[in-house]
Design a protein around this nucleic acid. Structure first.
Lengths: 121, 121
DNA sequence: TACATTGTGCATGCACAACATACACAATTT
DNA sequence: AAATTGTGTATGTTGTGCATGCACAATGTA
Protein backbone atom coordinates (compact mmCIF):
# COMPACT_ATOMS: atom_id res chain seq x y z
CA UNK A 1 0.00 0.00 0.00
CA UNK A 2 2.02 2.88 -1.30
CA UNK A 3 -0.60 5.59 -1.71
CA UNK A 4 -0.97 9.11 -0.42
CA UNK A 5 -4.28 10.88 -0.12
CA UNK A 6 -4.99 14.56 0.33
CA UNK A 7 -7.96 15.70 2.36
CA UNK A 8 -7.71 19.16 0.86
CA UNK A 9 -7.79 17.98 -2.74
CA UNK A 10 -10.89 18.77 -4.78
CA UNK A 11 -11.00 15.14 -5.82
CA UNK A 12 -12.96 12.69 -3.65
CA UNK A 13 -10.81 10.42 -1.53
CA UNK A 14 -12.17 7.25 -3.08
CA UNK A 15 -11.23 8.55 -6.53
CA UNK A 16 -7.70 9.43 -5.46
CA UNK A 17 -7.37 5.89 -4.18
CA UNK A 18 -8.82 4.43 -7.35
CA UNK A 19 -6.49 6.42 -9.60
CA UNK A 20 -3.33 5.60 -7.67
CA UNK A 21 -4.03 1.89 -7.38
CA UNK A 22 -5.05 1.76 -11.04
CA UNK A 23 -1.81 3.37 -12.09
CA UNK A 24 0.21 0.98 -9.96
CA UNK A 25 -1.52 -2.05 -11.44
CA UNK A 26 -1.18 -0.82 -15.01
CA UNK A 27 2.43 0.14 -14.52
CA UNK A 28 3.08 -3.41 -13.31
CA UNK A 29 4.02 -2.38 -9.80
CA UNK A 30 1.27 -4.64 -8.52
CA UNK A 31 1.41 -8.03 -10.19
CA UNK A 32 -1.47 -10.24 -11.19
CA UNK A 33 -2.74 -12.27 -8.29
CA UNK A 34 -1.42 -9.82 -5.73
CA UNK A 35 -3.75 -9.51 -2.79
CA UNK A 36 -4.69 -5.97 -1.85
CA UNK A 37 -4.72 -5.21 1.87
CA UNK A 38 -8.06 -5.82 3.60
CA UNK A 39 -10.27 -2.76 3.47
CA UNK A 40 -10.19 -2.39 7.25
CA UNK A 41 -6.42 -2.37 7.35
CA UNK A 42 -6.20 0.05 4.44
CA UNK A 43 -8.78 2.28 6.11
CA UNK A 44 -6.84 2.28 9.35
CA UNK A 45 -3.58 2.98 7.59
CA UNK A 46 -5.02 5.83 5.53
CA UNK A 47 -7.18 7.12 8.37
CA UNK A 48 -10.38 6.97 6.36
CA UNK A 49 -13.55 4.95 6.64
CA UNK A 50 -13.86 1.36 5.53
CA UNK A 51 -16.61 2.44 3.17
CA UNK A 52 -14.41 4.93 1.41
CA UNK A 53 -11.87 2.22 0.68
CA UNK A 54 -14.59 -0.14 -0.38
CA UNK A 55 -15.89 2.40 -2.87
CA UNK A 56 -12.46 2.71 -4.44
CA UNK A 57 -12.10 -1.08 -4.59
CA UNK A 58 -15.55 -1.24 -6.22
CA UNK A 59 -14.38 1.09 -8.96
CA UNK A 60 -11.35 -1.11 -9.52
CA UNK A 61 -13.61 -4.15 -9.72
CA UNK A 62 -15.91 -2.41 -12.21
CA UNK A 63 -12.91 -1.48 -14.35
CA UNK A 64 -11.86 -5.10 -14.40
CA UNK A 65 -8.60 -4.41 -12.59
CA UNK A 66 -9.25 -6.60 -9.54
CA UNK A 67 -11.39 -9.54 -8.56
CA UNK A 68 -13.17 -9.37 -5.24
CA UNK A 69 -13.95 -12.53 -3.28
CA UNK A 70 -16.04 -12.15 -0.17
CA UNK A 71 -14.29 -13.56 2.84
CA UNK A 72 -10.96 -13.90 1.07
CA UNK A 73 -9.84 -10.58 -0.30
CA UNK A 74 -9.30 -8.52 -3.42
CA UNK A 75 -6.81 -9.72 -6.02
CA UNK A 76 -5.21 -8.01 -8.98
CA UNK A 77 -6.76 -9.48 -12.11
CA UNK A 78 -4.92 -11.49 -14.72
CA UNK A 79 -4.38 -9.87 -18.10
CA UNK A 80 -1.72 -9.65 -20.75
CA UNK A 81 0.70 -6.78 -21.20
CA UNK A 82 -1.18 -5.77 -24.32
CA UNK A 83 -4.44 -5.63 -22.44
CA UNK A 84 -2.79 -3.65 -19.69
CA UNK A 85 -1.48 -1.15 -22.21
CA UNK A 86 -4.89 -0.84 -23.84
CA UNK A 87 -6.65 -0.11 -20.56
CA UNK A 88 -4.00 2.42 -19.61
CA UNK A 89 -4.34 4.22 -22.92
CA UNK A 90 -8.11 4.23 -22.64
CA UNK A 91 -7.94 5.87 -19.23
CA UNK A 92 -5.41 8.44 -20.34
CA UNK A 93 -7.23 9.27 -23.54
CA UNK A 94 -10.50 9.76 -21.73
CA UNK A 95 -8.81 12.21 -19.41
CA UNK A 96 -6.99 13.94 -22.24
CA UNK A 97 -10.21 14.54 -24.13
CA UNK A 98 -11.58 16.75 -21.41
CA UNK A 99 -8.21 18.42 -20.88
CA UNK A 100 -7.89 19.44 -24.51
CA UNK A 101 -11.47 20.65 -24.59
CA UNK A 102 -10.52 23.11 -21.88
CA UNK A 103 -7.41 24.31 -23.70
CA UNK A 104 -9.33 24.70 -26.94
CA UNK A 105 -12.00 26.77 -25.25
CA UNK A 106 -9.31 29.34 -24.51
CA UNK A 107 -8.23 29.34 -28.13
CA UNK A 108 -4.91 27.59 -27.61
CA UNK A 109 -3.26 25.97 -30.58
CA UNK A 110 -1.59 22.57 -30.43
CA UNK A 111 1.83 24.19 -30.57
CA UNK A 112 1.03 26.50 -27.70
CA UNK A 113 -0.09 23.58 -25.56
CA UNK A 114 3.07 21.63 -26.36
CA UNK A 115 5.15 24.67 -25.54
CA UNK A 116 3.52 25.01 -22.12
CA UNK A 117 3.85 21.28 -21.48
CA UNK A 118 7.57 21.32 -22.19
CA UNK A 119 8.01 24.10 -19.68
CA UNK A 120 6.01 22.45 -16.94
CA UNK A 121 6.29 18.68 -17.25
CA UNK B 1 -24.75 35.07 -24.93
CA UNK B 2 -23.10 32.34 -26.91
CA UNK B 3 -22.77 29.54 -24.37
CA UNK B 4 -23.87 25.95 -24.27
CA UNK B 5 -24.36 24.00 -21.06
CA UNK B 6 -24.67 20.29 -20.54
CA UNK B 7 -26.88 18.93 -17.81
CA UNK B 8 -25.20 15.55 -18.03
CA UNK B 9 -21.66 16.87 -17.61
CA UNK B 10 -19.86 16.07 -14.38
CA UNK B 11 -19.03 19.75 -14.05
CA UNK B 12 -21.49 22.00 -12.21
CA UNK B 13 -23.55 24.25 -14.47
CA UNK B 14 -22.30 27.44 -12.84
CA UNK B 15 -18.74 26.37 -13.51
CA UNK B 16 -19.42 25.60 -17.15
CA UNK B 17 -20.87 29.09 -17.45
CA UNK B 18 -17.91 30.64 -15.66
CA UNK B 19 -15.37 28.86 -17.83
CA UNK B 20 -17.05 29.73 -21.12
CA UNK B 21 -17.60 33.39 -20.32
CA UNK B 22 -14.07 33.66 -18.96
CA UNK B 23 -12.64 32.25 -22.15
CA UNK B 24 -14.72 34.63 -24.27
CA UNK B 25 -13.55 37.64 -22.29
CA UNK B 26 -9.91 36.59 -22.35
CA UNK B 27 -10.03 35.79 -26.05
CA UNK B 28 -11.35 39.30 -26.64
CA UNK B 29 -14.72 38.15 -27.95
CA UNK B 30 -16.36 40.20 -25.23
CA UNK B 31 -14.87 43.68 -25.10
CA UNK B 32 -14.24 45.80 -22.04
CA UNK B 33 -17.36 47.63 -20.97
CA UNK B 34 -19.64 45.12 -22.63
CA UNK B 35 -22.78 44.54 -20.58
CA UNK B 36 -23.61 40.93 -19.87
CA UNK B 37 -27.26 39.97 -20.22
CA UNK B 38 -29.33 40.38 -17.04
CA UNK B 39 -29.24 37.23 -14.96
CA UNK B 40 -32.98 36.70 -15.39
CA UNK B 41 -32.73 36.81 -19.15
CA UNK B 42 -29.67 34.57 -19.15
CA UNK B 43 -31.45 32.13 -16.84
CA UNK B 44 -34.50 32.05 -19.09
CA UNK B 45 -32.37 31.58 -22.19
CA UNK B 46 -30.31 28.77 -20.66
CA UNK B 47 -33.28 27.22 -18.86
CA UNK B 48 -31.58 27.34 -15.49
CA UNK B 49 -32.26 29.15 -12.25
CA UNK B 50 -31.37 32.79 -11.64
CA UNK B 51 -29.15 31.65 -8.80
CA UNK B 52 -27.09 29.39 -10.97
CA UNK B 53 -26.30 32.29 -13.28
CA UNK B 54 -25.62 34.56 -10.33
CA UNK B 55 -23.11 32.08 -8.97
CA UNK B 56 -21.24 32.03 -12.26
CA UNK B 57 -21.26 35.84 -12.43
CA UNK B 58 -19.96 35.94 -8.84
CA UNK B 59 -16.98 33.81 -9.85
CA UNK B 60 -16.30 36.17 -12.73
CA UNK B 61 -16.45 39.12 -10.34
CA UNK B 62 -14.10 37.39 -7.89
CA UNK B 63 -11.63 36.72 -10.72
CA UNK B 64 -11.72 40.40 -11.62
CA UNK B 65 -13.18 39.75 -15.04
CA UNK B 66 -16.39 41.74 -14.59
CA UNK B 67 -17.72 44.56 -12.44
CA UNK B 68 -21.18 44.17 -11.00
CA UNK B 69 -23.33 47.21 -10.34
CA UNK B 70 -26.60 46.60 -8.55
CA UNK B 71 -29.48 48.02 -10.53
CA UNK B 72 -27.43 48.51 -13.67
CA UNK B 73 -25.83 45.26 -14.71
CA UNK B 74 -22.57 43.37 -15.05
CA UNK B 75 -19.84 44.82 -17.23
CA UNK B 76 -16.66 43.32 -18.61
CA UNK B 77 -13.77 44.87 -16.71
CA UNK B 78 -11.11 47.09 -18.24
CA UNK B 79 -7.64 45.64 -18.54
CA UNK B 80 -4.74 45.65 -20.95
CA UNK B 81 -3.94 42.92 -23.43
CA UNK B 82 -0.95 41.98 -21.33
CA UNK B 83 -3.07 41.62 -18.25
CA UNK B 84 -5.56 39.57 -20.22
CA UNK B 85 -2.83 37.25 -21.41
CA UNK B 86 -1.46 36.87 -17.90
CA UNK B 87 -4.81 35.88 -16.46
CA UNK B 88 -5.41 33.46 -19.30
CA UNK B 89 -2.05 31.79 -18.76
CA UNK B 90 -2.62 31.59 -15.03
CA UNK B 91 -5.91 29.78 -15.58
CA UNK B 92 -4.45 27.40 -18.12
CA UNK B 93 -1.35 26.64 -16.08
CA UNK B 94 -3.39 25.89 -13.01
CA UNK B 95 -5.39 23.39 -15.00
CA UNK B 96 -2.32 21.93 -16.69
CA UNK B 97 -0.66 21.25 -13.36
CA UNK B 98 -3.34 18.80 -12.33
CA UNK B 99 -3.50 17.33 -15.84
CA UNK B 100 0.19 16.53 -15.92
CA UNK B 101 0.06 15.10 -12.41
CA UNK B 102 -2.41 12.56 -13.72
CA UNK B 103 -0.27 11.67 -16.73
CA UNK B 104 2.82 11.33 -14.58
CA UNK B 105 1.04 9.00 -12.18
CA UNK B 106 0.69 6.56 -15.08
CA UNK B 107 4.37 6.86 -15.84
CA UNK B 108 4.02 8.76 -19.11
CA UNK B 109 7.01 10.64 -20.41
CA UNK B 110 6.78 14.13 -21.87
CA UNK B 111 7.29 12.74 -25.37
CA UNK B 112 4.50 10.23 -24.95
CA UNK B 113 2.12 12.94 -23.83
CA UNK B 114 3.04 15.14 -26.79
CA UNK B 115 2.55 12.18 -29.12
CA UNK B 116 -0.94 11.55 -27.79
CA UNK B 117 -1.76 15.24 -27.96
CA UNK B 118 -0.78 15.47 -31.60
CA UNK B 119 -3.07 12.59 -32.43
CA UNK B 120 -6.06 13.95 -30.57
CA UNK B 121 -5.99 17.72 -30.61
C1' DT C 1 -18.55 -26.29 15.64
C1' DA C 2 -16.47 -22.05 17.19
C1' DC C 3 -13.96 -18.21 16.07
C1' DA C 4 -11.44 -14.81 13.59
C1' DT C 5 -11.07 -12.45 9.15
C1' DT C 6 -12.86 -10.89 4.99
C1' DG C 7 -16.17 -8.20 2.16
C1' DT C 8 -21.30 -6.31 2.09
C1' DG C 9 -25.65 -3.73 3.15
C1' DC C 10 -28.09 -0.18 5.50
C1' DA C 11 -29.11 4.22 7.80
C1' DT C 12 -27.14 8.64 9.05
C1' DG C 13 -24.72 13.35 8.88
C1' DC C 14 -22.87 16.78 6.17
C1' DA C 15 -21.72 19.76 2.30
C1' DC C 16 -22.98 21.53 -2.02
C1' DA C 17 -25.59 22.28 -6.40
C1' DA C 18 -29.81 23.87 -8.11
C1' DC C 19 -34.21 25.63 -7.54
C1' DA C 20 -38.54 28.99 -6.59
C1' DT C 21 -39.71 32.85 -4.27
C1' DA C 22 -39.48 37.13 -2.05
C1' DC C 23 -36.58 41.18 -1.10
C1' DA C 24 -33.66 45.54 -1.74
C1' DC C 25 -31.65 48.95 -4.54
C1' DA C 26 -31.28 52.01 -8.85
C1' DA C 27 -33.12 54.11 -12.93
C1' DT C 28 -36.97 55.70 -15.33
C1' DT C 29 -41.62 57.30 -15.90
C1' DT C 30 -45.59 59.72 -14.38
C1' DA D 1 -42.31 63.04 -5.10
C1' DA D 2 -44.45 58.62 -6.03
C1' DA D 3 -45.07 54.66 -8.83
C1' DT D 4 -43.22 51.48 -12.04
C1' DT D 5 -39.80 48.87 -14.17
C1' DG D 6 -35.31 46.67 -14.25
C1' DT D 7 -31.37 45.16 -11.90
C1' DG D 8 -28.78 42.22 -8.51
C1' DT D 9 -29.43 39.98 -3.64
C1' DA D 10 -30.96 37.07 0.26
C1' DT D 11 -33.79 33.33 2.27
C1' DG D 12 -35.52 28.80 2.56
C1' DT D 13 -36.18 24.07 0.33
C1' DT D 14 -35.02 19.98 -2.24
C1' DG D 15 -32.05 16.60 -4.20
C1' DT D 16 -27.47 14.40 -4.75
C1' DG D 17 -22.92 12.77 -3.59
C1' DC D 18 -19.02 12.02 -0.18
C1' DA D 19 -17.82 10.06 4.01
C1' DT D 20 -18.98 7.63 8.19
C1' DG D 21 -20.23 3.61 11.86
C1' DC D 22 -22.33 -0.48 12.83
C1' DA D 23 -24.48 -4.80 12.10
C1' DC D 24 -24.65 -8.81 8.72
C1' DA D 25 -23.03 -12.56 5.50
C1' DA D 26 -19.43 -15.41 3.54
C1' DT D 27 -14.97 -17.62 3.89
C1' DG D 28 -11.02 -19.81 6.11
C1' DT D 29 -8.87 -22.02 10.16
C1' DA D 30 -8.28 -24.43 14.67
Amino acid sequence: MNVSISNTSEKPIYQQLFEQISAQILKGELESGYCLPPIRQAALELRVSVITVKKAWEELERSGLINTVTGKGCFVAEFSSDEKLRIRNDMILKQMESDTAYYKSFGLTLDEVIELLKKNY
